[in-house]
């Protein structure tokens, strides 16, 4: 698969070759592909979502970034055989990462923090700090809060309202770069640099429909009238908003003292 430019830019000035890497929140496998393409010795791609685990294995395998024989568990012993050995997709909760203390040299959290509410973020940061070896690197890529009055912001608001009613927590939290910078510093990570990955952020038709579906499915879990109203609003917004380019995606890099 193609490594997105966002990922390539975030990893561009980080030492990946030969490192043991943790991709926290594997999602669609984008950062996983970037780490493998940049020569990681090993990538642990962790997600709690079985579909995401499958997607990550499949996309990486299909494209031959790392030929994992389709299921990520065994190589074929050919040229790319050891690429398979380089990737382990783990279905696990980042609040309790199934890796020993000090076992990874580089951690990526690409688009992870925005799906973590403050309580989860707090626990995940502790875990990331635990598994990091002395001198390890951390890359945190995320979105600044959107300005007021955007259409896509309205859709996120509906998604969050439905999530709050259904699950008592927000679906999305956009932490400002300055916030995460100080937050990880508080966890003992030395700040190294900030880069702007995307400005504006292109929320495309496919993002809009994916978020509208997400909002509608959570609204379906909401009790009573509120759920109906929210899912109707999500559907309306999905047809009204085609796409919108707004906001900023940033990349922060940190280092653990050696």
């Amino acid at each position: 698969m193609d490594v997105p430019d966002t990922v390539a830019t975030a990893l561009g000035d980080r030492p990946v070759t030969g490192r043991r890497c943790l991709e926290a929140g594997a999602g669609m496998g984008n950062a996983t592909a970037g780490l493998l393409a940049n020569g990681a010795a090993r990538v642990y791609a962790v997600t709690n979502d079985p579909d995401h685990a499958r997607t990550t294995r499949r996309r990486v395998a299909d494209s031959g970034v790392a030929d994992s024989g389709g299921d990520g568990s065994d190589g074929d012993g050919s040229d790319r055989g050891n690429d398979a050995d380089r990737l382990a997709v783990l279905k696990a909760d980042l609040r309790s990462i199934p890796l020993p203390d000090g076992s990874v040299d580089l951690i990526t959290a690409h688009g992870l923090c925005n799906v973590l509410d403050p309580a989860a973020l707090s626990t995940v940061a502790e875990e990331l700090s635990r598994v990091a070896a002395p001198g390890a690197h951390l890359v945190v890529d995320d979105y600044d809060p959107l300005p007021d009055g955007t259409a896509i912001g309205e859709l996120f608001a509906v998604e969050n309202a439905a999530s709050e009613l259904a699950r008592c927590r927000p679906a999305l939290t956009f932490y400002p770069a300055a916030f995460l910078r100080r937050f990880f510093a508080g966890h003992g990570w030395e700040f190294e640099r900030e880069r702007t990955l995307l400005e504006p952020v292109p929320w495309t038709e496919s993002h809009v429909s994916a978020h509208a579906d997400e909002a509608a499915s959570m609204a379906a879990e909401c009790p009573g009238e509120a759920g109906d109203t929210l899912s109707a609003t999500a559907r309306r917004l999905a047809t009204e908003i085609e796409s919108e380019s707004v906001g900023r995606m940033y990349s922060l890099a940190f280092r653990r003292p050696g």
Partner: peptide
């Protein structure tokens, strides 16, 4: 990239 992405369900970038 997203306009002709093979993974239509993407929420992020």
């Amino acid at each position: 990239r997203h306009d002709d992405s093979p993974v239509p369900e993407q929420l992020h970038h």
